[in-house]
Amino acid sequence: MDGQVLLPPNIEDIPPPGLALVEELDKLLLVQLRDGRKIIGTLRSFDQFANLVLQGAKERIIVGTQYAEIPLGLHVVRGENVVLLGELDLAREPPAGLELVSEAAIKQAQRAEREADKMKGTLRARFDFLDDI
C-alpha cells in the first residue's frame, strides 16, 4: 500500500453510475440468474442497475454431464436477478466433458433430478410426521 491515508475519492474521479459494463457490450456473455438459470447471449444494452438486453439469448441447462441450449430470442433481464456475467472464452466453448443433447432429453433429465430430490424430501417429511405422534 503506497498512500498513508485513504482519502475519499474526488467527485470527478468517480465514474458516472452505469458504465461498469461498457467493456462487455457486444460480447457473448453467460449470465447467471438468482434462481440458478444460466442465459447466454450478446449484450446489447445495460444500465446502472445491471438491467440487461441480450440478443440471441438461449438458456443453457446442464444436468450431470449433459447439456442443452434452448433458444429464447431477445431478452431483457432485470438487474436485481443478475448474479454474475461471465465473458465466455470461445476457445473453451462448449465446456469440455459435456455432451450436447436435445431439449426433450435435458428436460427429462431435469425432471428425474427433481424427482430424486423430492423423494428425499417426502421421506424426511414422513419421519418428521412420526416424530410428532
Binding site: 459494463l21 454474475l84 456475467l85 461471465g86 465473458e87 465466455l88
Partner: peptide
C-alpha cells in the same frame, strides 16, 4: 460446470 468456459466476470 457452467463456469468452466468463463475466464473473466462481473459480479453484481
Amino acid at each position: 460446470p457452467h463456469m468452466l468456459s468463463v475466464r473473466a466476470c462481473f459480479v453484481r
